[in-house]
Design a protein around this nucleic acid. Structure first.
Length: 505
RNA sequence: GCCGGCGUAGCUCAGUUGGCUAGAGCGCCUGACUGUGGAUCAGGAGGUCACAGGUUCGAGCCCUGUCGUCGGUACCA
């Protein structure tokens, strides 16, 4: 043999093997069902886009995580037209909106697709992952945001994820916080730049005030102590890395803490306290009224405090959000963080269109949500799609086995004909290992009697615990029945009905 | 990106201060039991010790680099 190619995958990529795929497809189908119930229409766009279409929405730092693609058409002397893989579904949507002017407005679409980011992979974080997005483009009214929040709730309910909480706030409330705390648009910070092993040089730099939001977003993860340090002097973390502080003054930090102190399970209480705190701030009443209106509409539809909260620490990556922002967490799987999030982005489409175009939407991290549901046992992986394995007992009877298999399939019962070369014992073992619940056996005996033998492997699995001796095991033939050939379908159906399958499979 | 830990069978891991032919459990395969999945018993296959270089009489073990992986941190449109 010559050198075989080593089978391997590029870092951060993974295969999706059959077991989790079944659960994944159920997840996606269920989400799609909810979105179509809301009247959203499907859209697909290519994985590859021109790099200038992808980048720019979030500045140069965004480019660092885009996978670039070599343009095969570029010729010597021609201007380069670099390409990249999409990193989200929102930017392609903005392009589509701008490119197809005759699309209905408002345009309400859903899209489930892979996206790619060149970030460092981590647990539950891959370089290729699937997002499921829902967006309303062309609606300035907050009713569109209310609808998105409601759809998030209905989706999570349909997925049977257990208790969850959708939290929302508004980017404009956070802008008011900057006024309230008297934080200027540019913050001067001292960055520490590594110049060698263990040595640093200090450099002054300007950071936009939005950096404050980025820090606030970490509250839940790092706690108030570290948050305070990061707002002021900075600190050195466990690994010895220096975290740059924003150099805010005590008064400013105190006011931010006042703001963060406003939290309650009651939306109206949060709004009341916010009104008090932002008392003299210009424009505050108007923004708070908007949140109050959303809250009232949600309550009117039955989305109450038990699952939708106003949480002022929700900031999200604020690069293009302009209004309400929202995210959902599973209360049984808090460590997975936000599994579903979004917000209003009224300026994004303008980049392509040149004129304002309001838009709002949310995105599900399908992989993260799936991982969370598998971990808390709210969804189970199924190995087989077949419900019946038709075994091959006598090779001479293969035509009959084929016939039975197709009879089952044509009656809507997923069935597999065993195509390997193994004895009956091995075939049963195969069915058991694959999670196929029913085995069908027809040999010389059955043929003579005009019957078929059906075996429910799930019953045997239960009885296995009490049977010790192999003789007994074989003699008892747990879960096995013999029925007339003509009653095959009816018998299979009643056997399948006996143990009801969970929807997730 | 930065800091640190770890790479030994399909999986989880042992492997002494560097010393004979690299081990275990699980899984897999075969058989007992050729018409019965579990359990039990017996046997078997499977390793370039991540890769490359170096030190040494001798390296899974020590050194350097690369790759991978895990954790922290940054970023997350």
């Amino acid at each position: 043999m010559t050198d075989a190619v080593k089978p391997r995958l590029f870092r951060g990529l993974r295969d999706q093997l059959p077991e989790p795929m079944a659960a994944r497809q159920w997840l996606i189908d269920t989400i799609r069902g909810v979105y179509e119930l809301y009247g959203f229409v499907p859209l697909a766009t290519p994985a590859i886009e021109y790099l200038d279409v992808l980048s720019g929405s979030a500045g140069t730092e965004a480019q660092d995580s885009i996978f670039t693609v070599k343009n095969p058409d570029v010729r010597p002397g021609d201007p380069e037209e670099p390409l990249g893989l999409r990193f989200d579904l929102t930017v392609p949507l903005a392009r589509v909106i701008s490119q197809y002017r005759d699309l209905p407005r408002p345009f309400r679409r859903y899209q489930v697709s892979s996206v790619w980011r060149r970030d460092k992979p981590g647990p539950g974080r891959f370089r290729e992952f699937t997002q499921f997005d829902i967006d309303s483009v062309g609606v300035a009214s907050e009713v569109a945001d209310v609808e998105i929040i409601a759809a998030m709730c209905d989706t999570l309910t349909a997925l049977n994820v257990g208790p969850y909480r959708v939290r929302f706030s508004s980017r404009r409330i956070l802008s008011l916080l900057l006024k309230y705390a008297a934080i200027p648009e540019q913050i001067e910070v001292v960055e520490r730049v590594r110049t060698g092993s263990g040595t640093f040089s200090e450099e002054k730099a300007n950071r936009p005030a939005d950096d404050v939001f980025r820090v606030l977003d970490k509250l839940e993860r790092v706690g108030l102590e570290k948050l305070r340090l990061e707002l002021t002097s900075g600190y050195t973390d466990k690994s010895g890395d220096f975290i740059c502080g924003l150099g805010l003054g005590d008064d400013q930090v105190a006011k931010i803490e006042n703001f963060l102190d406003i939290h309650s399970d009651s939306r109206s209480e949060v709004l009341d306290r916010l009104r008090d705190t932002f008392g003299g701030v210009e424009g505050a009443d108007e923004e708070i009224d908007i949140l109050a209106g959303m809250s009232r509409q949600l309550a009117g539809l039955g989305y109450n405090d038990d699952r939708v909260a106003i949480d002022l620490s929700v900031a999200r990556g604020l690069a293009y959000y302009t209004g309400p922002v929202f995210e959902a967490v599973l209360l049984d799987a808090p460590k997975f963080g936000s599994v579903f999030g979004g917000g209003r982005y009224d300026n994004l489409v303008m980049r392509f269109l040149g004129e304002p175009m309001p838009a709002t939407g949310a995105s599900i991290g399908v992989d993260r949500l799936l991982a969370a549901l598998l971990e808390i046992g709210k969804i189970s992986a199924r190995r087989a799609t077949a419900q019946v394995l038709v075994t091959v007992m006598d090779k001479a009877m293969i035509d009959e086995y084929l016939g039975i298999t197709f009879e089952l399939r044509r009656a809507g019962v997923p069935a597999e004909l065993f195509l390997g070369k193994k004895g009956i014992g091995k075939q049963l073992k195969y069915a058991d290992a694959q999670g196929i619940p029913i085995v069908l056996m027809v040999g010389g005996d059955e043929k003579e009697k005009g019957t078929v033998t059906l075996k429910d492997l799930r019953k045997g699995r239960v009885m296995s615990a009490e049977i010790q001796a192999r003789e007994t095991w074989i003699r008892e033939r747990p879960g096995q029945i013999e029925v007339p050939r003509g009653e095959l379908l009816a018998a299979v159906r009643s056997m399948l009905a006996e143990a009801e399958e969970r929807p997730a499979g």
